[in-house]
Simulated scan of single mutants.
Amino acid sequence: MSNKEIAATVKDGARWQDLEIELKGLVTPSYDTAILSYEARAKRQNGEPYAALVSTGYAKRDGRWKMVFHQQTPQA
């Protein structure tokens, strides 16, 4: 998907409620990369609970951390 297509999937008001994040791990393969692993729990806008294991990767570019990877694996 292009950046424009991804941005179009985000709708106003479709936000998580009562978000809780528990860090599970941090890996720094090099001085300018980092991968966070965490468990996220929240409620959807309709009140339905949601939980996922999440990994997010970052790269440092021009002195700033930029997200370069993100994935979620929903939990039952």
Rank of each mutant, 00 (worst) to 15 (best):
L26N: 08
Y31D: 15
G57Y: 06
T9L: 13
R61Q: 14
L19Y: 07
G57D: 07
G63C: 03
T33W: 01
P29I: 00
E39G: 01
P49W: 02
W16Y: 08
Q72H: 13
G25K: 00
V27S: 06
D62I: 00
Y31H: 14
Y38G: 03
N3L: 12
R15D: 14
P49C: 02
E20F: 02
S30I: 00
R44E: 12
E20V: 09
Q17G: 06
W65N: 10
S55Y: 05
W16H: 08
K60I: 08
L19C: 06
Y50F: 14
L26S: 06
P29S: 02
E5Q: 14
I21E: 09
N46C: 01
D32F: 13
W16E: 04
K11I: 05
D62E: 14
T56E: 13
E39W: 04
A7W: 05
M67D: 01
G57P: 03
I6S: 04
K11V: 10
V68A: 04
E22F: 00
A52I: 07
K43G: 02
K60D: 01
S55L: 08
A59V: 12
G63I: 03
S55D: 02
A51P: 07
T9I: 01
V54N: 12
S55V: 11
S55K: 04
Q45G: 05
T9M: 12
K43I: 05
K66Y: 10
K66Q: 15
A59D: 00
L36A: 12
Q17T: 07
G57Q: 06
T56Y: 00
T9H: 04
I35R: 09
K11T: 11
L53M: 10
R61V: 14
G13H: 01
I6W: 10
A51Y: 05
R64I: 13
E48Y: 11
S37F: 09
S37T: 15
K11Q: 11
W65M: 08
V10F: 15
G63M: 03
L36Q: 04
S37P: 00
L19D: 02
N3I: 10
S30G: 07
T73C: 11
Q17L: 12
E22T: 15
V68L: 02
E20C: 03
D32W: 09
M1W: 09
K11F: 10
A7R: 09
G25L: 00
Y31M: 05
M67L: 14
D32T: 13
S37G: 09
Y31A: 15
R44I: 00
L23E: 09
A7I: 12
V27P: 00
D12E: 15
A8Q: 10
E5M: 04
K24S: 05
I21T: 11
N3C: 07
L26K: 09
V10S: 15
E5I: 02
L23R: 09
G57L: 05
V54E: 13
V10D: 10
I21W: 00
Y58F: 15
A7N: 09
M67K: 15
K24N: 09
A52E: 12
A59K: 08
R64A: 12
T33D: 02
A7K: 13
I35C: 08
A59S: 07
A59M: 08
Q17R: 15
Q17P: 01
Q45T: 14
A14Y: 05
P74A: 14
K66L: 15
K24E: 09
Y38S: 02
P49G: 03
N46S: 10
A7M: 13
V68W: 05
A59H: 05
K4Q: 12
R41L: 08
I21Y: 00
G25A: 02
Q17V: 07
